[in-house]
Amino acid sequence: MKFYPMIPYILCLILFFVGLYGLIVKKNLLKIIISFIIMDNALNLFFIVLGYKKDASFPVFLKNRMSSSISMVDPVPQALVLTSIVIGLSVTILMVAVALRIYEKYRTFDITEIKNLKG
C-alpha cells in the first residue's frame, strides 16, 4: 500500500483525534463544545473522502450530462454525511443550551468548579 494516497485519511484521523483530545482534556465548557464540533466535522470529512474517485465529478445528472460514461464520485457517503451533519447540529444546539443553563446556575464555564455530583 502506497503512502501517498493515504494522506487525506490520515489527516482526517489526526483532526478527529485533535477533537477527541479537546473533548477529554479541556476544562472550559465552550472549548469542549468546539472540540465536539471539530470531531464531528473530521468524521464527516472522513466519510466524504471515502467516496472520492480520481477525476470524477459530482453525482448529479443534468440535461447535458446524461450518459452513463461520466465517472462520478460515490453519492452514498454524501447522503450519509448530510444526515450526520443534521445530527451533529442538533447535538451542538443541545450542548449550547445546557451550557447556557449551567452558566445561569453556576456563573462559570469552568468544569473544575462545577462538581456537585460525586461518589
Binding site: 443550551a97 447556557l100 443553563r101
Partner: peptide, 13 residues
C-alpha cells in the same frame, strides 16, 4: 426555534 430559544434565554439571563 432553536435560535429563538437560545437568544430569549440569554435575554432573561
Amino acid at each position: 426555534s432553536a435560535f429563538l430559544c437560545l437568544i430569549l434565554f440569554s435575554y432573561q439571563d
